[in-house]
Design a protein around this nucleic acid. Structure first.
Lengths: 328, 328
DNA sequence: GTGAAAGCGCTAACAC
DNA sequence: GTGTTAGCGCTTTCAC
């Protein structure tokens, strides 16, 4: 039972304005010439009738698709419930709405993303793709038809523009803060090893620490709180004089906080903890987390916009700022 | 420069299978009769050519729309960056993807939602609507064409089915836990007064507290951390013997935690704090937050599904469970 | 059971 | 400038 739907088509507007459909279309779509008089009458009629162009018909004829898909790479589909991803999708959905487009989310299996990518390339409803957590091999294997309307949040490639936070700079700010406040043995808990956009902050950490003549202590993480806790204990076992833990990702840092609390260490007295991203929860942990900002909404909006209308920019990095709270 | 897009249309499949477009359509769409032989040949051809029906063309002819919109009521458009909303949108986007549909988010001004709703009703690309944070008046003013493909997360109406967490029961569990553990002066910080789905937990609180012969102490909140903190201090000023604060919404509870810490009270020793929703951050606050679960993903998925394909269920409530941590 | 033909609502050539 | 004429890719009567 299809409920009755309003039927105000271009035809009606044209009729009411006393012009042809073509003229009405030109006026309303803003393409092509039209006399001032015609323009006025069409607009008046459209407004009076409450005409809204059907994005579907429009999409059919000019082939721009009807949706943008946010495709996220991960080892399991559990990545789909990630809060960070949710913010990206939600922001993209707000941007796409302005064009009458929708947004979908899909999981791209890290192990074998090709079938999913091919399906995306074939699907003519897909107007643009925003890749999240991409790897270089995946970018290089991107089906031809997708290039030009795909943008990556994270690492880019010659064919795929990238948008991201300047996490190299953000990480440097955090490490410098740690050193400035007297920390001398800083351990770093990284993101997943396969994720290339998490390499920049690691490099920044190494440079800063080495530059100060201090030891590099790097442990692989996965952005998760549980792993953050485990690696923290590991660091303190392996290097008992560790006086600061810097986790890439606030969730991991919160995990570190929990592990330290359980093991009887005082934060920041015994060991300082810093995170990255400034998620909402960072403000409310005990103690509140020192971290660096990650303007997810800005990044997602920029990515969504350029997936829909390619800009030609190869690389866009948004700034990251230090947020000093209690934990470090 | 429109990049080359794959062009395998029904026409090609029909040609390759040696049948007419009509027959190919019947086979592929699964509607109408077709001989076993025709069926086989069409399917083989489709598979071989990698044919994927164009959802846009399909939508144009059968009018189901190409997207679902999540419309959220709020006093300002800032509501669009709410993490809870993000989880709803992201989940809906996953569900819609299965149908080749996208999802958009729109803000419905609390003060005057009508223009936005009318636009929604007129927009033929809108296949379904999921309302978030609705009010009864808004539901009653829902444009006709929208009914039947709209579902509300929160409060419902005769015309609009509702999906929500059973927050009445969840709130009862929390209050009972508080009383069971010896609390006798429990203050409640509510959600925004205009939000009807936040009434059930208030009623549950009143019933539980009154049933135990204890005083009712209700303060209006808005789910925000800042207000949570302010109201907590207010409660302790007005009723100094308050020994527990129950905030509807974990963010508000986290705000309460922060305010208590700053004012020198110990949690849970001096006053217990409980929240509602079990957001990710609840686990990592100091102390970790006692709360009740809110299966947002389950709810959003159910809502999205029934917006797309009406089920006829009037009201669906998902369970809420007590999560006891350190704060109460 | 199958094909021919008529649209869905819009845009884009191509004459006038 | 403006109207006429074709389609975009699909589903769907309606004859056969």
């Amino acid at each position: 039972v299809q409920p009755e739907r309003p039927v105000v088509t271009l035809e009606h507007v044209a009729l009411a304005a006393g012009v042809s459909r073509a003229t009405a279309s030109r006026v309303l779509a803003g393409t092509g010439p039209a006399s001032a008089e015609a323009r006025r009458r069409v607009q008046e009629a459209a407004a009076r009738l409450g005409y809204v162009a059907d994005p579907v018909a429009r999409a059919l004829v000019n082939g721009g698709g009807t949706r943008m898909v946010v495709a996220v790479v991960g080892s399991t589909s559990a990545i789909l419930t990630d809060p960070y991803l949710a913010r990206v999708v939600s922001t993209a959905a707000g941007v796409a709405d302005a064009d009458g487009l929708g947004v979908s989310v899909q999981w791209l299996p890290l192990a074998d993303p090709t079938p999913a990518l091919d399906r995306l390339a074939r699907d003519r409803s897909v107007g643009g793709v925003v890749l999240v957590n991409t790897t270089r091999p995946l970018l290089d294997a991107l089906p031809r038809p997708l290039s030009g309307r795909t943008v990556s949040i994270g690492v880019g490639s010659p064919a795929v523009p990238a948008v991201d936070v300047d996490n190299g700079h953000g990480a440097r700010l955090v490490v410098e803060h740690l050193l400035r406040t007297g920390r001398r043995r800083v351990a770093l808990i990284t993101g997943p090893p396969w994720l290339p956009c998490a390499d920049r902050p690691v490099a920044a950490y190494r440079a800063a620490v080495r530059g100060a003549g201090l030891p590099e202590r790097v442990l692989p993480g996965d952005f998760g709180a549980a792993t953050g806790g485990v690696r923290t204990i590991e660091a303190l076992t392996r290097w008992p004089d560790t006086d600061a833990v810097f986790a890439l990702g606030d969730a991991a840092a919160l995990g570190a906080l929990g592990a330290l609390r359980r093991s009887g260490r005082r934060v920041p007295d015994d060991v300082a903890v810093a995170g990255f991203d400034d998620i909402p929860a960072a403000e409310h942990s005990g103690p509140a987390l020192t971290t660096a900002t990650h303007p997810v909404e800005l990044i997602a909006a920029a990515a969504a916009r350029s997936a829909l209308r390619p800009t030609g920019d190869g690389q866009t990095w948004f700034g990251s700022e230090l947020v000093v709270r209690q934990s470090a």
